[in-house]
Simulated scan of single mutants.
Amino acid sequence: MTKVLVLYYSAYGHIETMAYAVAEGARSASAEAVVKRAPETVSDDRAKAHHFKMDQAAALATADELPDYDAIIVGTGTRFGTVASQMRSFWEHTGGLWMAGKLVGKIGSAFTSSGTQHGGQESTLLGFIPTFLHHGMVVVGLPYSFSGQTGVEEVKGGSPYGASTIAGGDGSRQPSAIELEAARFQGAHVAAIAAKLGRSEAELL
């Protein structure tokens, strides 16, 4: 069975919600999907002072376990147009995996969240692609076969680079139905491609 890791960092819970939708999508494509989170890098006192969501059930991930999966779908909020430092810190610890080529040929995909419609969602997703490529991973996005990302009838995230949600300036907006649908679609799409790659590799062997 194809194994998918949904690896996320979520300060306020929006990406956490999206992560479980991504995992749901992967499971709908007959994959085993595990949801884990990157460790927090700020102190508990500071996190509480800034109203971070502290009650997240997902277990903490470690870099050493990444090779156990066929696909890794990364979720992180946008910070000034780029990946949140907590997720970046997690990947800073993957140098040993890079040196050993442990992630070569695996699927890499990403999703994100920002406070505003133009708050850096695309730059965050595009900015993470080099990390996947340095590891020799195969990058998968959110294709336009998910037609929900093309309409303008409502405020919504989503781009060909990955699913996304808009939290609102005060963080009060939660992922919408169409944004969660995009997350599920991406999870299923990644899982399906990972399964095809796995079959092709098995045939070569």
Rank of each mutant, 00 (worst) to 15 (best):
T76Q: 07
H118E: 15
G77Q: 01
M54K: 10
E92C: 10
G127Y: 00
S89W: 00
T78V: 15
P39D: 09
S85T: 08
D45E: 11
T94N: 04
P130S: 05
A61W: 00
I72L: 08
Y69N: 12
E122S: 15
A110R: 06
K36G: 10
G81V: 05
I73G: 09
S85K: 11
L125W: 00
L97Y: 03
A26L: 01
V35T: 15
S113M: 03
E65M: 04
H93D: 07
G148T: 04
H93V: 06
A33T: 13
G136T: 03
G119T: 09
S123N: 11
H50D: 06
I107M: 02
A61E: 00
T76V: 14
T78S: 14
V104M: 15
E153S: 15
E32K: 09
S113Q: 10
M87F: 02
R27N: 15
T112Y: 01
E40P: 05
I107E: 00
L126S: 14
Q121I: 07
G148C: 02
S123L: 01
T76C: 12
T150N: 13
L66H: 04
F80H: 12
G105Q: 00
V140S: 10
H135G: 12
G151A: 10
V83K: 06
L142K: 03
T41W: 07
A57M: 03
A58T: 09
T116S: 14
R27D: 07
F146T: 06
A58I: 14
D44R: 13
Q86M: 03
L125D: 02
T78I: 06
M99P: 09
D68Q: 13
F111V: 14
I107Q: 02
L103Q: 08
S147M: 07
A100Y: 01
G108F: 06
A84I: 06
A63H: 07
R79W: 11
A38Y: 00
D70L: 02
Q149L: 12
K102F: 03
S145K: 03
G115R: 08
S89R: 14
T94E: 00
S147D: 13
S145P: 08
V138I: 12
A84C: 11
V104I: 13
V34T: 09
G115E: 11
T116H: 08
V152M: 14
E122D: 14
K106A: 13
M99C: 12
T82Q: 15
